[in-house]
Simulated assay, not measured.
Amino acid sequence: MTPPWREVSYPRALVVALATVLAITLLYGGLTSTAAFGAYNSAWDGASELRDLADRQDSETVLLQNTTTYADHPPNQSIAIVLSPDAEYTPREADRVEAFVREGGTLIVAEDFDPEPDALLEAIGAEVRFNGSLLRDERNHDTAPTFPVADARTDHPYTAGVDRLTLNRGTPVEPGNATVLATTSNYSYLDTNLDGDLDDTETMQRYPVAAVESVGAGDVVAVGDPSIFINAMLDRQGNRAFARTLLGSHDTALVDVSHLDALPPLVRAQFALRGAPLLQITVGLALVLVVTYLSEAGALAARARHRFAPGEPDPALDAPVGPGADREAAAAWVRERHPDWDAERVRRVTDRVMARSSKGQDDD
């Protein structure tokens, strides 16, 4: 018996291999993202490790593609994360976020230089704001002055077990009535003209970089650098411990990507499918039709392969028939010997048997 792989031609094998590679590439591209702070971005600037950390904290992780889904989760058991949104929240969207916080939810807003988060904080009734100027520390920093290390030793539960935070091109927070959670050293300053030097108009002093404020029954945590939560920064001093403490204090982590273009195409399609029953039915019917078509195509291909290929023994040669053989008897003999054959193949072999019988008569 010839092994199945020997029946496959090299061109066909190459086409199958290329199709497989293309399918894997498309699947990977459809399930991953390259957007900064993206929950499905596994590169240095993504937040996939933050999502994994939330999963390991015995808490449910939910991606919110729309602010309407805030209402689907108990606020007093949930913490929502907003990392550097790309667009401003509309008044109606901000109302939903505010309702979540005022009913007992915790909201983390992390930003450095863009104005959208300040607009959100104002809309939900919080007083804390982001300064927007680049923070540098010439002495207490990680790899460079733009990586200032902040002291996070406070008595607040959100910094329990956290000694410090490491920023990456962050900005101070302006706490207002909020409680400060982390502060830079006395050697930090705001590089307002971005020249990389401490000028006469720039003064070294301590700056708060994280604060928590009560809004209604909930909390708003403002962090002056969304980068502390990205993959490349989570392992810097204190960052993972801070994220773990925040996430571990709640049963559900809501990652708000409603204003962040960070969802891969297949994940976005999954969200769309979940929220559209009619679309689910349509896709289901389409899959049934595709499977049915492939099954029929496979059956036709199998029947085609079972035709008498070059070099295949002719079953009709073994038929014990002679001149004047009865067609029904010949067909019964074929079916008895080959019960796995379909009716079409039985008919073809029977035709050959009868042809041999007629040839025998002619020879006589």
Rank of each mutant, 00 (worst) to 15 (best):
T183N: 03
E202V: 12
V257P: 00
E213S: 07
F242R: 04
T192Q: 09
D225T: 02
A253L: 12
A211K: 09
D261E: 12
V215S: 09
V223T: 00
S188A: 15
V257Y: 10
A232F: 07
D235R: 04
Y187P: 00
S188G: 11
T179W: 02
D191Y: 05
V215C: 12
E213F: 10
G248E: 03
L260P: 01
S227G: 02
T252W: 04
T201R: 15
G224D: 08
P208Q: 14
D251C: 09
D251R: 15
D200S: 14
D195T: 13
E213Q: 14
L181R: 08
L246E: 07
D191H: 06
G224W: 03
H250K: 13
S258T: 13
P175I: 06
R244P: 00
A178P: 02
Y187H: 13
A182T: 09
V209P: 03
D195I: 07
M233G: 01
L246Q: 08
L234E: 05
H259R: 12
F242V: 05
F242T: 06
T203E: 14
L263F: 04
S188H: 02
P175G: 07
D256I: 08
F229Q: 05
Q237V: 07
Y189C: 05
N239D: 07
T183P: 02
E213N: 04
Y187N: 15
A178N: 09
G218T: 01
I230H: 07
T201L: 08
N186H: 10
N231H: 05
T184H: 09
L263G: 04
N239S: 03
Q237R: 15
D200F: 10
L190K: 03
L181F: 09
D256M: 13
Q205T: 13
P208V: 06
L254A: 08
M233L: 03
P208K: 05
R206I: 02
N177M: 07
R240I: 06
D261A: 13
S258V: 06
E174I: 13
A211N: 06
I230N: 15
A182R: 06
G218F: 12
L260T: 11
V180Y: 01
D219E: 14
A178Q: 11
V212P: 03
A211Y: 03
V212Q: 14
M204F: 00
I230Q: 09
A182V: 01
V212G: 02
V209L: 06
I230S: 10
G218I: 01
T201I: 07
G224K: 11
T179A: 14
A243K: 05
D235N: 10
R206P: 01
L246M: 06
R236M: 14
A222P: 08
L247G: 02
P208L: 09
S188M: 10
S249C: 01
D256R: 08
R206W: 01
D261F: 12
P175S: 04
R240V: 09
A210S: 12
D256P: 11
R236E: 09
F229C: 03
V255Y: 12
N177Q: 09
R244I: 00
T192W: 00
T183K: 04
V180K: 00
Q205A: 05
